[in-house]
C-alpha cells in the first residue's frame, strides 16, 4: 500500500503532505527534509527511485537478507516536474513503474483541473489539490487510475477556482500565502 504522498518545491517547501498513518508533525517535517536532501542532490539523469531516507532505513532493511516484510515502506518513488517534486512512499506490494504512472495521472489531473497547472495553483487551491489526491488514493489504497473519472470526481465537489490573474509569480512560499486570504474568502 501507499504510505505517504508528498509534494514539495525545489527549495523543499511542502505543497502537499499526506501520510496514511498518523505521524507526529515534527517527524513528518523531518522525513520531508530528509527526502528533500536525497532528491535534490540527484542529477536529472538518475532513476526515479530513492534510497530509503535514514528515518525509514533504520528500522527496515538491514544487511541480512531476510524476507522483506510487506508492511514496511520500502520504496520511495519520485518525479520532478518544473518546480515541484512529487513523491510516493510505498510498500513492496506496489509496482514501482506503475507508481510512476500514477504520479503522472495525478499531475495530468491537476493540469486538466487548473488548465496548465503551476505551483501557484496548488498553493491557492490547497483543498482542490487534496481533493484530487483523495479521488486517486483513499487510505493508502489506489481507488482510481482513470484520468477522466478523477477529474469528474473533483469537479463534482464544486467549482475549481482559477488562479487570479493579477497575482504575480513572486508568490512562491509563505509570502504568497498571506496574499491568498482573499482567494479563500471569495469562494
Amino acid at each position: 500500500m501507499i504510505n505517504a504522498v508528498l509534494v514539495f518545491n525545489n527549495s523543499g517547501q511542502p505543497r502537499l503532505t499526506k501520510f496514511y498513518t498518523q505521524l507526529e508533525t515534527s517527524v513528518q517535517q523531518r522525513l520531508i527534509s530528509e527526502i528533500f536532501t536525497l532528491v535534490s542532490n540527484r542529477p536529472n539523469s538518475s532513476c526515479n527511485f530513492l534510497p530509503l531516507p535514514p528515518l525509514l532505513a533504520s528500522s527496515s532493511k538491514s544487511s541480512t537478507p531476510t524476507t522483506p516484510h510487506n508492511d514496511t515502506p520500502s520504496l520511495v518513488t519520485y518525479r520532478h516536474y518544473a518546480t515541484l517534486y512529487f513523491i510516493i512512499i510505498s510498500t513492496s506490494t506496489e509496482s514501482p513503474l506503475a507508481l510512476l504512472d500514477l504520479i503522472q495521472v495525478f499531475v495530468e489531473a491537476l493540469d486538466r483541473l487548473f488548465e496548465n497547472v503551476c505551483e501557484l495553483d496548488l498553493i491557492f487551491n490547497f483543498e482542490t489539490l487534496h481533493a484530487t489526491l483523495s479521488e486517486l488514493i483513499v487510505g493508502g489504497v489506489v481507488v482510481e487510475t482513470q484520468l477522466d473519472k478523477v477529474v469528474d470526481g473533483v469537479k463534482a465537489q464544486g467549482r475549481v477556482a482559477k488562479r487570479p490573474v493579477n497575482e504575480g509569480k513572486g508568490a512562491l512560499g509563505l509570502g504568497g500565502f498571506g496574499r491568498g486570504d482573499g482567494v479563500w474568502a471569495g469562494r
Binding site: M1, N3, A4, F19, Y20, T21, L23, V27, L31, L55, L56, S59, S60, S62, T66, N70, D71, T72, P73, I89, G140
Partner: peptide
C-alpha cells in the same frame, strides 16, 4: 527486527 518501521501500517 521486531521494531516497527515509521509509516508502517501494521496488518
Amino acid at each position: 527486527k521486531g521494531k516497527k518501521s515509521l509509516l508502517e501500517v501494521d496488518s
